[in-house]
Amino acid sequence: MLIWVSALHCEAKPIIDFYRLKKSHDDTAFDHYRGNGMACIISGTGKIASSAACAWIAARYGDEASIAWINLGIAGAAQHDIGSIFSLHQVIDADDGHRYYPAPASAVELDGSACMTLSLPSDDYSEEYLFDMEASGFMYATLRFSSAELVKSLKIVSDNQREKIGRDRQRVSDLVHQHIDSIERQASSLMALNDEVAARSPGLEYWQQLTSMAHFSQTQQNRLRVLWRYLMNRDFDAVTLMQQFEEHSPRAIIKHLEQLSYRDSEGLRP
């Protein structure tokens, strides 16, 4: 699952169009689009709005094995040209000084930049940073649900000391749209990583079925989880495995799975 988080609809529109996401009419807290293993949420302006939107949508998709995130939006800069795109490598909250570091996990990287998140709009830009109003709130919330490798913030310069187009919705959409190919590459590599993480989680459906087959103590459940996760990751078939249990006692089930694990692992085959 990949979740896009943008402050404004005009920032997200090219993504919604590109991936043909459909608006969800089930929810009223935030505008929310979905489709293709993705969701997109429009948070509104500011770091608190961004945090709230991330927390809300993380809860909404709490059943997902793993979630990757992209914060896509515009930023101000002192010198960078309008339309330059950056992947943030450092996010600084101007209010409390807290710093966040999205972690590089894929070889496909855009140019990096630090970004300072302000609570109020300002055009007093310094050379060192981009300036926005959401990234620190986005990082604060998403790092509670996903690891730093699955969190990205992409910023496109809309305002600099020479020109300001951040208030022109159509031009903001155009700025995002002109980078749609590189944004798509970022999204694809992030989704591949996310799939890798998700694939290591045991299927919840079968896990519930398995644990309901006998009354497992907490210690037995812990052992069972390790064995089940291993066997599922080694492409054993869940249904066939459950049919093999001759006796439905916790000990017998665990012993059976242990024997399979031991046999499978003794060659160290990958």
């Binding site: 972690a103 590089p104 996990a105 894929s106 996903s146 690891s147 730093a148 490798e149 699955l150």
Partner: peptide
């Protein structure tokens, strides 16, 4: 030191 890091993913492209 932050906890929200995935060692396995990070090992692919460490800094």
């Amino acid at each position: 030191n932050p906890r929200s890091q995935n060692f396995r993913l990070q090992k692919k492209n460490p800094a």
